[in-house]
Computed example of a mutant assay.
Amino acid sequence: MTGDPAIRAEELRKRYGDVQAVDGVNLEVRRGEFYGILGPNGAGKTTTLELIEGLREPDSGKALLLGEPSWPRNPELLRRLGVQLQASAFFEKLTAREQIRTFASLYHVGHATADAMLDKVGLTEKANVRDDKLSGGQAQRLSLACALVHDPELVFLDEPTTGLDPQARRNLWDLLRQINAEGRTVVLTTHYMDEAQILCDRVAVMDAGRILRVGPPTELIAEFGVETLEDVFLQLTGREYRE
C-alpha cells in the first residue's frame, strides 16, 4: 500500500432536486487497500461510488482513479476497473458460463480465462444454469466473476451482500478477502457495520451525503471508547444506526 493513491476524490457534490445526495466528499484510497464506505440507506454511498467510478458526472469536484480523471469516461481507464453494481445486470436467458464468456469477450478475454474465473468463484457446477435460476448468493458470485474476468487493478463493490442469508454473506466475505489478498484495491459500500468491521482496512463513515470520519475500524472504536461501529455512528450523529 505505497506510492500514489488508487483513488483521490476532492469536494465531490451531486444534487437531485431538493436532495443533496453528495455534499463535498473528500477521500483517498491507497493502492492494495480494502476500503469501506459505510452508512445507513440513503447516506449517499451509491451516488458517491458512481461519481468516483465515472458513471455519473459530478455537479462539482473531481475524482482521480489510478492517476487518471474518472470523468469524462476514459475507455482505457475502464479496462483497469471492475465494477459490481448494487443490482446484478445480466444478459437475458444465458447460463452462468455464457454470461461470463460474454462479459469476457467485451475485453477480448478468452473462454479458458472466463471458465477459470467461474471456477474461482465456485460456480463450475452451475455453469449450465441460467442466471434467473441461481440463488441470491450464486448470482452475486457470478456478478463478481463478471467484474473480475478482465483482471482489473481496482474493484468497486456496491453493497454486494444485501439480501443474502448469513451463510451466503460469509462465503462471499471469504471470496472478497481473496480478491484483495491478490493485490487488488477493493472499495466496498455497505450498510452492514459488522461487514465493514470484519473486511476493511479503513472505513469512511457516511451520513446525509457527508463523510463524518475515516479510519481503521478498530481505531475508530477505540477512539470513541465504544464496542462497535454502530456505537461510533451514534457518537458521531447523536442517533442510533438503522440498516
Rank of each mutant, 00 (worst) to 15 (best):
Y107T: 10
L148T: 13
Q20S: 07
T189I: 05
P166S: 00
V203W: 01
K45W: 11
I198D: 15
A104P: 01
R170A: 11
Q138L: 09
D174E: 15
R141H: 05
P72G: 13
R97A: 15
I100G: 00
L234Q: 12
T228K: 08
L164T: 09
Y35F: 15
Y107N: 09
G32A: 10
T218F: 04
R15E: 10
L157A: 09
E243R: 14
R101W: 07
S105G: 12
R8A: 11
L142R: 04
L49W: 02
G3T: 08
E243W: 14
N26C: 15
A204E: 08
S88D: 15
D59M: 14
D201K: 03
G24Y: 10
G32T: 07
R31W: 04
N171I: 05
R177I: 10
H111R: 14
D4C: 06
S60Q: 07
P166T: 00
V186K: 03
G17W: 00
P216N: 01
A147G: 03
D131F: 06
V25E: 01
H191S: 10
P75W: 10
R13C: 08
G24R: 13
V232A: 15
I211K: 01
L188G: 13
L49N: 01
V83R: 00
L106Y: 15
R242A: 12
L234M: 13
L234W: 06
T46W: 09
L49Q: 01
E57G: 06
S143W: 04
K45R: 14
Q197G: 08
G61Q: 00
S143G: 12
C146I: 14
N41C: 05
N74A: 10
A21K: 04
I198C: 08
F91R: 03
T124Y: 07
L106D: 07
